[in-house]
């Protein structure tokens, strides 16, 4: 039955090559912790993706309660944290996951760096990976403001001052992010939009690129 459905779709869309790229490829011995325990360092990339999926899912549930305006932002986070069933867990997952994803991504980057896996022909994948790193930092930076408590507010003020100190472009970047001359209502909605729409869109596009390249090129060989 299932096979007939598959064949029916495959005949129309020719999905077998796609499926083979996604699932039906070999995993070489030197990256398999079952054969060499030290190969667990090759898990960090997959774990980064795993945590990223957790971030996306928990973030989607957070937006069901979060209100991006300066009066209700804090109130809605506090409500979520103290009143909503499992709200504390979901917010906790998003909060700690944000740190964990940086840790995992850092470990993954170090593994790739010290095994020289970024060398030809995988240069482009390293560059895309670094762009993912920068996007993740951007997500951390914009997400930090959203609870709209004092810590968030003052950290964002400092961040925008640092952005302002970049020559020529600084004041433009600052005003673009801040949406005016003070850190206020407009800043919160901009950071919200960047955190929830702009950066995740860029992140997903980069991840697709990252994964297509790793499938095309395969994992770098043993040292």
């Amino acid at each position: 039955m299932l096979k007939n459905v598959y064949n029916w779709i495959d005949e129309r869309l020719d999905i077998t090559p796609i499926w083979r790229d996604v699932a039906d490829h070999e995993v070489p011995e030197h990256v398999n912790p079952a054969h060499h325990f030290s190969a667990f360092v090759y898990c960090f990339g997959g774990l980064t993706f795993f945590i990223t999926v957790i971030q996306i899912l928990s973030g989607m549930f957070l937006t069901m309660y979060y209100v991006p305006d300066i009066i209700n932002a804090y109130n809605s986070v506090e409500y979520l944290q103290t009143q909503v069933a499992f709200g504390q867990i979901v917010r906790g997952m998003h909060h700690w996951g944000a740190s964990l994803v940086i840790v995992m991504m850092f470990l993954h980057t170090m593994r790739v760096f010290f095994t020289g896996s970024y060398k030809a022909p995988r240069e482009m994948n390293w560059v895309v990976g670094m762009l993912i790193f920068f996007v993740m930092l951007g997500l951390g930076l914009t997400g930090y403001l959203l609870p709209w408590d004092n810590k968030a507010y003052f950290a964002t003020k400092v961040t925008l001052e640092i952005a302002n100190s970049v020559p020529w472009l600084g004041p433009i970047i600052k005003e673009l992010l801040q949406g005016g001359t003070i850190v206020g209502a407009e800043t919160l909605t901009r950071f919200f939009a960047i955190h929830v729409f702009f950066l995740p869109a860029v992140l997903l596009a980069l991840l697709v690129g990252h994964f297509i390249m790793i499938r095309r090129q395969g994992i770098s060989g043993p040292l």
């Binding site: 700690w96 609870p147 968030a152 003052f154 950290a155």
Partner: peptide, 20 residues
């Protein structure tokens, strides 16, 4: 460890700014 939450943002508060 529940996710931390401080007091509502108040531009007049004296808080030592700390990034993540």
């Amino acid at each position: 460890e529940p996710a931390p939450l401080g007091y509502p943002a108040d531009p007049g508060a004296s808080v030592i700014p700390m990034p993540d």
